[in-house]
Nucleic acid binder design. Structure first.
Lengths: 248, 248
DNA sequence: AAGTGGTCTAGACCACTAG
DNA sequence: TAGTGGTCTAGACCACTTC
């Protein structure tokens, strides 16, 4: 049970509380969108002062694993609608405004992991994976091709139908159906040239420059959830990144 | 004087304290690398509890404007050596390790701002600017061309000689000589094709894909300091970005 | 009115740094 | 030993939400 006295330990109490909260969330004790116990209850349950609880919760709020709502409670982050979308979707138009992509799934198949995919997903080579190809359109024109690889073990029963029928972002599907909450991503960006099928899908001539984004999505404890390789046609859009300030 | 009682206000005390600290830092009252007054002194000076001071300092520490050193004090962030470099320099090798670039300045001239530069630097069109072109080499090969634009007004007396003679990063120069502390950057990334002089400088054929990074560096109150357009040859390196976790 | 998070206080004790 | 930040407590009062 998550709400039990803390065992003796060298680490600060607020770190222990923090760890317990992460446990509870990733074990599904409190699901996405649900409230965790009130600060007073947590303090009582863990046998620590309320200020200590607040410090632990503060750090999880800063990481966006929890959100506070005054007068209501503290909730496990729910990736509903555009909130999550824009947290991890960084393509913006010339004027800096973000545009909502329209997603079309053009391939969905089961496969075995090659060496690179296995390493990225921290699974064994030849383990089962699900591969998906999406074409994303911005303002009506195809601008992004996403190749997604998932460890099949983490997503039992995922079919093309349920995948395509989702009425929300992919990360929302991971969360609502499998309780997997994407908290962090690690991205590597390069410039490449369009060729073959990619060029055709993006409606650009072979040899056009594309932005390639190789992203690994991570959940609690930095466990990899998804490998995604995106190619973006950036003549009318760009990838937007802000460094430095993450807190108010 | 920064250490004076706070005036009546609606905003929380810790935000007022935070604003005063930012004032003191940007006014140069406490310079980069120097300690601010102890938490007890700040609490006494402002007439608030020490916990309130801690909350204000916490937020500035999270933004990396201050650093705490237990037993010694709280210091204004000093961008020494590789700390800053790697905070804002995101190019890494295939294995994910960051490599130290070798910088060569090939152009340094004074100019008037065009419309785009003026907008980026929040100055008037035709205001004086300094333009610099650097070639950065990674592992002995030219990989990046940087075109830098600075508002001349912010950098009085900056000459090619002092610029080239710096023995540290450019942001360190801004800080040590002009008291300008770069805290945040806003970057837009696109893929472009190499051509003309750029291709020659990077030793790639015209038509090779390059990663273009358009960066605006900001100091306190989001005041723009520098506009930098980088073109990166990404066949052996990539741009590395981590999203989500910014706090421990 | 009751319950929640948000702010703020006043103090205790610990761990680290320096003279 | 004195001074600094780091942790933790116990409580007060406020603002917001819900019934």
């Amino acid at each position: 049970m998550s709400l039990a006295r803390l065992p003796p330990s060298d680490s600060p109490l607020y770190e222990q509380v923090r760890a317990r909260l992460i446990e509870g969330i990733s074990a599904g004790e409190w699901k996405a969108g649900e409230a965790i116990p009130s600060e007073a209850d947590l303090a009582g349950g863990f046998g620590v002062a309320i200020g200590t609880i607040r410090k632990a919760v503060d750090s999880l709020v800063a990481e966006r694993a929890l959100v506070r709502r005054q007068g209501k409670g503290t909730f496990v982050t729910a990736h509903e609608g555009s909130r999550l979308l824009f947290h991890f979707f960084h393509i913006a138009g010339r004027d800096g405004r973000r545009v909502l992509p329209e997603v079309r799934t053009i391939a969905f198949r089961r496969d075995r992991a090659d060496r690179e995919t296995a390493q990225a997903l921290a699974i064994a080579p030849a383990d089962k994976v699900i591969r998906i190809r999406n074409v994303l359109s911005l303002e009506g024109r195809p601008r992004i091709v996403d190749d997604i690889a998932l460890a099949a073990e983490l997503f039992p029963g995922l079919t093309e139908k349920t995948f395509v029928a989702r009425n929300n972002t992919i990360y929302h599907l991971y969360q609502s159906r499998y309780g997997i909450n994407v908290l962090r991503t690690d991205e590597r960006l390069r410039a490449v040239l369009a060729e073959g099928e990619l060029a055709a899908l993006l409606e650009v001539p072979p040899g056009a420059p594309l932005l390639e984004i190789r992203r690994i999505a991570l959940t609690f404890r930095d466990r990899p959830v998804e490998l995604r390789v995106s190619r973006v046609e950036t003549s009318s859009h760009h990838y937007h990144n802000t460094l430095g300030k993450e807190l108010g």
